[in-house]
Design a protein around this nucleic acid. Structure first.
Lengths: 347, 347
DNA sequence: TGTTAGCACTCTACATCTTTGAGTGCTAAT
DNA sequence: ATTAGCACTCAAAGATGTAGAGTGCTAACA
């Protein structure tokens, strides 16, 4: 489609525009990039590229600005040329910080977003791991006081959820253990997703002597399972958006920040496409929400074992340093996956 | 100090400025408020008020703007005149929403901030209850698998913290119970604060037969206690700040939002003065951080039993509708305290 | 035939100037 | 003590001018 020279011109424009955020003219371009042709020739090429939809003019006689189509072309080129590199040294450095400063999983994700935002200078987003996909290891009913029991769900990565429950009559520690054991025998090694269905199937009918207790416990477990579904989203470096000239406009900044504040929307954006593998890039108009149609979103996934359980990414103006961000994300994807693997092997 | 008429003029200016956010001139004032004197007289009074430090002029021949001193005067007047009212109907309405939509304590606080921001149109802040001050009710060691035990701390309001622990050798359920019972007998009914000291005192020396186990468990409990110290801060309606003309300036908006993003600072601001009772107002220059020296902060406390455990409040431009905010805060203080009392009585 | 120099034209950004209107402060009259 | 009147001030908004970067076209050139 595009000949060699057009590609070089286009990439030069994108490269330049990403840095200066101002329409690029043919003369500046010929001065700053060694394209081997005069500004007049570049002018002609630019005119062609505009007709092909890769460039836009803000007004009649201004320089050109890359279109979403141009960024898409540029990004695909980077990916196909396998230009993404992983800086092992940097990776280990980040991993050290992450493991040192994160006691809990949620904190790990939160810290990841923080560091990611710091090194990319864009707003970072992350969702907490969807532990529904983690296997449930254990259900434990613990007697607390007379008539009060504690229901605990334990997954691969530790306690998954718990609650207290008051019963109508007291139950002995023995009885509770029997029930716990029964539940464990039946439910162990199902994913939490699967467990919900099992409960609905009323597999407990042969435990008739504890019917009353089980009838009380099951809705509680169901509720706990529901709670697990709560996804946490973290955003860090939201105010970084103010550093970009295209967001000097208060209204634009407001709508961006409002967008980030709305956790619901963030979740939708992050989970838009299913958790398939690798780096994913949504450019400008490709976004589902109008508010961020002048933003690009770059995300990657992290895994537990062989299951993708979460996402982390960066959002910023379409004029984004795609290569740098992709390189950075690679570090995090790899680090998080390794850390989760480590956690998994601990239990 | 100020005679009757000066007070009326001052309050009229503040009232007007809170609404329009623009310097108030003598003529406008005489037209919109029935002060019974001409604009020339008001002009003289304004001149006096300026000399007394209650008014400022942005430039030589502009209208007047209230100073921090003026707001302080105005707020004290409101408080002394006991103008703060509680709308019982509204209170119940909010209470209903809060109890319906909040399953957990943190969620309760988060929802409170959300609603508070919605009804006041300012940014709302809240800190999670400092449950260190809640009495610890129970410590439970639960056998999970061979050599793995679960350590659970239970407070008035439910599970306070927990973790899993791997031991070198297996311990029977019985032994664990013995240890649990012992710990409970000794530790029950101390606040978590106090408990930390008890542990340091090594009160366990007479449990020599479980020495090894206890030696493993105690640092874990200590760590759990430390974790509890984590204070969560919630901010809601951050972007409301964009609605105020004084924050149309991108840099001001950025520094405000950056401030809100920094949880550390928020905690300092909210816990600046100890958790004494009632509504507290910090106006402009009275703030400890420079970034918000043109903001006012209005907070109130909520209690559990007779102990103050948290704070909720509102931050916005010094030109703030103080009375409305105080009225709203009163609803929340009262509601949250009632809800916590209810939770307390449940256990 | 593709490339380039040259030139007329366009449009923004910026600076400067002017006008308008709300406001003050002073003075003299009530 | 209060008020009307007037001169003066200043920001905000509009008008005007200029500089600079850019485009598109044409004619010359290799």
């Amino acid at each position: 489609m595009l000949d060699e020279r057009k590609i070089r011109v286009l990439c030069a424009i994108i490269d330049s525009y990403i840095r200066v955020a101002e329409p690029i003219g043919s003369r500046t371009l010929s001065k700053e990039y060694d394209l081997g042709v005069s500004s007049a020739t570049i002018r002609n090429e630019m005119s062609d590229l505009e007709n092909l939809g890769y460039l836009n003019k803000p007004y009649t006689s201004s320089g050109r600005v890359p279109s979403d189509k141009a960024y898409r072309f540029y990004v695909n080129k980077i990916i196909n040329a396998e230009e993404i590199r992983m800086d092992i040294e940097k990776k280990e450095e980040i991993k050290k910080i992450l493991t040192r400063e994160s006691r809990e999983i949620d904190q790990l994700i939160q810290n990841s977003a923080k560091i990611l935002s710091a090194i990319t200078s864009y707003t970072a987003l992350a969702i907490s791991p969807q532990i529904k996909k983690i296997r449930l290891k254990h259900i434990q009913l613990v007697p607390l006081y007379d008539k009060e029991i504690l229901v605990i769900l334990v997954g691969d990565s530790g306690i998954v959820n718990n609650t207290m429950l008051r019963m109508d009559k007291s139950i002995s520690s023995d009885q509770l253990n029997q029930i716990s054991n029964f539940l464990n025998k039946k439910l162990k090694e199902f994913t939490i997703d699967g467990l919900e269905d099992l409960i609905k199937d009323d597999i407990f009918k042969d435990m008739y002597k504890f019917k009353e207790t089980i009838d009380s416990v099951i809705p509680i477990i169901s509720k706990l399972l529901e709670d697990i579904n709560d996804i946490e989203v973290y955003a860090d470096g939201v105010t970084k958006i103010f550093d970009f000239p295209e967001y000097r406009d208060t209204d634009k900044a407001k709508s961006f920040i409002s967008f980030i504040e709305d956790k619901e929307q963030l979740i939708n954006v992050l989970l838009n496409d299913p958790l398939n593998n690798g780096i994913e890039i949504t450019i400008g108009d490709e976004n589902i929400y109008d508010t961020i149609k002048d933003c690009s979103l770059i995300t990657t996934t992290y895994k537990l074992g062989d299951m993708t359980i979460g996402k982390i990414g960066v959002i910023g103006p379409t004029r984004m340093d795609y290569l740098m961000v992709m390189n950075s994300l690679k570090l995090f994807s790899s680090n998080l996956t390794e850390i989760f693997d480590m956690l998994l092997s601990q239990w």
